[in-house]
Structures are given as structure tokens and as C-alpha cells.
Design a protein around this nucleic acid. Structure first.
Lengths: 251, 251
DNA sequence: CGTACGGTTGACACGACTCAATGGCAGTGG
DNA sequence: CCACTGCCATTGAGTCGTGTCAACCGTACG
């Protein structure tokens, strides 16, 4: 295998290059010097794509690695004893997941692909090792963990204090910003999650999400066709979440 | 100042001893070897007590240190543009706070004493430095950050899915466990926070908290006198939060 | 072509909020 | 020492937002 001119690459031997990755400024290497990125690269191991619905890890799985989304979208959710689920985050390209395993060395969440997705695996012992030698990465990791905490706190406020309307508006504004940062349109995009997932994430009933989409459309804020959303008045959506924290936290 | 036999100690020169601290097994030194604790101790700087209502830090303050509660209780809250507040956590002795500043090097929360409280200050640059040399502390810090994330995720579920009754039960069970771990009764204690604070934290109205306390008392679950709570049926309270995550997360 | 699932819409119910009045404790000043 | 005065807490009455239940539709997929 691996003869000259063969287009198929051997997944076990190639190294993913962070330097060449278009997501580098969004991902862990953000803010690292070239030589530091090189060191980080060595730790990155490739992984075969996850089909829609596949789990990257499940509750109880041994925590060994963090994962950076390379393409696609994933959701993280916690599960209660009686099988109820709560989505605690959606992960877009360049975003890290797996932090839920840091405490007990076992994952508490399920990470599931919402569509065919690829991720980079970052073995945690190696991350730790590099952190000891490269203060810049140590800083970056801390910043990242702090961001996760800040975002979840902003989410607590959203769930504790905001109306259904404000929650959906906030969700859309957040998606919009995240798409923009990735070079996509911030006013038209395809949702990779179902109404059910959105509802679950926002602590609402799926029917409420449907009704709100219809109302937003009636009010000229946006138009929806299935999962395709076109935002017509991003400023008015923003105005609805005025006073919310978390919108400009996505550092 | 500081003459022989003078009982007043100089706050600027004494070193707090983590080894002798009764909270050591709950706090950062948990799981560290004696020589590692010694090193950590050197970084700890004393701080004068905070009177009730005083802030340890406010949003926008430069992040320079983490704080460990030595006595008393504090609350952390985020504030929206229009002055609304959301309490995101209560901090009891042995617990760390300040993690909200890790992302941007500026605090996003207000940390306020609910009663006269003392804290140990841990300058963050020193923590980072020791982490590089002492993998055990590095691990402990990661575990701690992971725990914070896990707990906030459990809180997201509580706010998104649980009824008012379940939220208050969950809150009381959590308090009960935390008191027990600190050597206090897990069935009788004084709440250090007002009904208003509890309501804010749980995403409810203060009136709802009052009504629930009355109902819980009617049902023989507990008795309340002002802020003094006696739990009569901890098992039944636990049963009400069955299926909730987060109860046994407080590693 | 059939079936299943995701999404939309309507009718209704109910949990929690709001508004309002009252009570009681604690801290303050006379 | 006692009255004053907030603030916190309790309780009731009424409202409203959102959930629940149910029917229907369209699309995607087998």
C-alpha cells in the first residue's frame, strides 16, 4: 500500500498540518508562534469521518483526548438517569470539545455528529506535556477553558431569565456570528440541527420553536425554508437580545 | 509595629499554611504530596476579611488571582447591560472562585460576600509557574476546571428541564452535601443567602421559593424558620431530584 | 409507492410570574 | 429603652407564557 502516485493516503501515518489548516486562527493554534504550532501538530492524530448520528464518545468513556472539529457539526449532551437528554453545546469547525472529561477522567457527555463530520484528535497527555514546555499553549488552554465557563454562564442567564423569543433570537445571532467568523454568510445558512435539538438546547418545546420561526417570518425578521434560514434584519434580532451577555464573548 | 509579644500579626508578612488548614482536603491542595503543598503555600497571600456585601472583584477588573474561600460564603453573578443580575454560583469554604477571568484576563462576574468572609489569594502567574513544574497541580487545576464545567452543565439541565419544586429540592440536596463534606450537619443549617438570591440562582421568582418552602414544610419534608432549615426527609428530597445530574459530581 | 419522521398549526391546560397586601425581624436613631 | 423604618418573607388573587395533546402536512428515504 501507499505506492507512488497512489491517491489514497494512509490515515495512520499522515500528519495533519495545523499550519495549513484554514481553521488555524479559530482553533487551538490561535496565537501561537510557528515553532509552537509545529510542536502541537505532532500531537494531532487523524480520525476517520463520523457519519451523521455517530458518537465520538459517550458518558463513562475514558477521557484521553480533546477533539477539534475540522468539518461538520456535533452536539454535546448530558443524559439523566431516566434517559432524558439536555444538549449543552453545538460544535462548529475550529471549536474544541471533550472538556467534560477533564474532571473525573471519564466523559459525562455524549458527543454526536449532526452531519458527516471530521475531527482532529489531540491526546491529552501530549497537550499537558507541551503546556509544560510552552507557556503560550498553557495560556491558550486556560483561556479556552475560561471561555467555555463564560459561555455556559451566559447560557445560564439565557435559560433563567429570557423569554422563548429572546432565547431563539440569541441562538440565531450566535450562529450568525460563528458562521461569519468562518467566512460564511452571517445572514443565510443551513441549520445543521433539528427544531427538536434547538428546542432542547434552549429549554423549550419544539412546537414553540416552530411558532417562533413563523412569527419571526411574519414580522419580516427572517425567512425560513425547512432548515435554510435567511436573516433579513440581523440588527433587529440583535436588539432583541440587547443586554444579554455572551454575544460578544466568542473571543 | 510588631513588637515582641504583640498579639497583632502583620498581615503582609505571615504565610498562610495550607498544611494546617482544615479545608486542605477540599481545596486546591487535595491530592498533592507534602512537598508540592509547600510550594503552593508560598504563593498564597493573605487578605483581610470581606464584610457582608463587599465585592472581591467586579466585571472588568483585571484578572490576576484565583481565590479560595477560607470562611463565610460568596456569590458570583453576571450582570447584563440593563442592570439585570444572574447568580451563577455560591462559594463555600474550600471552593475556588475567579475562573471567570481566565478567558480574557478580565473578570466577567461580580464576586460578593454574603456574610463576613475570608479568602486566600492565589496569584495566577505563580499557579501557572508551579503547574509547569508540578504535574500533580497541573492535573488538579484541570480537574477543577472540568468540575466547574460539569457543574454548570448540570445547572443548564436544571434550568432547562426541571420544575420549580425539583430545582429547589436539588439546591437543598446540594447544600446539604456540601455542608456534610465540611463536617457540618447535612440536615440542619443556616442559609447564608436570601430567598431573593435563591430564586435568582434557580431562575424563579422569590415568591415561588417562599411558597415551595411552605409546601415542603406542610408535606413534612423540612421545617423552616427564617433562614434556618431543618431537613426531615433528605431521602425524599433526593428522590425528587432523581435523574438529575450534578448531585454526585461534587468530586 | 408507502411509510416514517420532522415540522407546522390549533385548542386547551397549567405552572409560575406579577401585582398587591400583610407580617415580622433587625438595625437605627431618638 | 422603645419607636421608627426598611427590608425580607409570606400569602392570596389573577394573568400570561409556554407546555401538552392532537391532527395534519410535506419531504426524504427505503
Amino acid at each position: 500500500m501507499g505506492g507512488a502516485g497512489e491517491p489514497v493516503v494512509d490515515l495512520a501515518t499522515i500528519q495533519l498540518s495545523c499550519k495549513q489548516c484554514s481553521l488555524a486562527e479559530l482553533c487551538l493554534p490561535r496565537g501561537l508562534a510557528p515553532n509552537e504550532v509545529e510542536e502541537l501538530e505532532k500531537a494531532v492524530t487523524p480520525r476517520r469521518p463520523l457519519p451523521r448520528g455517530a458518537s465520538l464518545y459517550r458518558p463513562g468513556d475514558r477521557f484521553a483526548s480533546l477533539f477539534a472539529v475540522k468539518s461538520g457539526t456535533l452536539k454535546s449532551m448530558i443524559t439523566t438517569a431516566d434517559g432524558e437528554e439536555q444538549i449543552v453545546g453545538f460544535h462548529m469547525p475550529g471549536e474544541l470539545l471533550g472538556l467534560d472529561g477533564l474532571n473525573t477522567q471519564r466523559h459525562t457527555c455524549t458527543a454526536m455528529a449532526l452531519e458527516r463530520s471530521t475531527v482532529c484528535e489531540l491526546p491529552f497527555v501530549q497537550i499537558e506535556e507541551i503546556c509544560r514546555r510552552q507557556p503560550a499553549l498553557q495560556r491558550e488552554m486556560c483561556s479556552l477553558l475560561g471561555k467555555e465557563i463564560n459561555e455556559e454562564q451566559a447560557m445560564l442567564l439565557l435559560l433563567a431569565k429570557r423569554t422563548a423569543e429572546e432565547r431563539l433570537a440569541s441562538f440565531l445571532v450566535s450562529l450568525s456570528q460563528r458562521y461569519r467568523r468562518r467566512g460564511y454568510s452571517d445572514t443565510e445558512f443551513n441549520l445543521s440541527m433539528s427544531r427538536h435539538d434547538i428546542a432542547n438546547y434552549l429549554g423549550l418545546a419544539p412546537e414553540t420553536i416552530s411558532r417562533l420561526f413563523s412569527r419571526f417570518a411574519d414580522e419580516g425578521l427572517l425567512s425560513v425554508d425547512r432548515r435554510y434560514v435567511r436573516i433579513h434584519a440581523l440588527d433587529r434580532l440583535r436588539a432583541m437580545v440587547e443586554g444579554s451577555v455572551g454575544v460578544d464573548l466568542l473571543g
